[in-house]
């Protein structure tokens, strides 16, 4: 690829990404009455998206091979227990990450 072609390729990636980000705001500008269904989705969607993001992060975990997702399972359990116990966001994240690093570096 020439440098110009590289710049065009990167430009296309920028354009596509910017489009996905701005589209909802272009279609439904603030100040204008939003359709009922979009108002409703804006309310119920975030909860589902938070779940989706957890699955998205773990999408490459192989259940049938490798470490069978055991380090991920243990680390997610540690995060959950820590969080339900202390409810300190940073502590839960730190605890889970340290356990996960220990597991993947030294055990699995």
């Amino acid at each position: 690829m020439t440098t110009t072609q590289q710049i065009i390729t990167i430009g296309m990636a920028v354009l596509a990404t910017v489009l996905t980000r701005f589209l909802p705001f272009i279609i439904f500008p603030s100040g204008k009455e939003m359709p009922k269904v979009i108002q409703y989705l804006g309310k119920v969607l975030p909860a589902a998206v938070f779940g989706f993001l957890v699955v998205f992060c773990l999408k490459n975990v192989e259940i049938l091979s490798g470490s069978h997702g055991i380090p991920e399972l243990i680390a997610v359990a540690v995060v959950t227990v820590l969080h339900l116990w202390k409810r300190q966001m940073l502590l839960s994240i730190l605890g889970g990450t340290v356990v996960y690093m220990f597991l993947v570096q030294l055990i699995f």
Binding site: A75, M89, G96
Partner: peptide, 10 residues
């Protein structure tokens, strides 16, 4: 994994 943990917490 810090990021996965963050999404789990959220």
């Amino acid at each position: 994994f810090a990021m996965t943990a963050m999404f789990v917490v959220i």
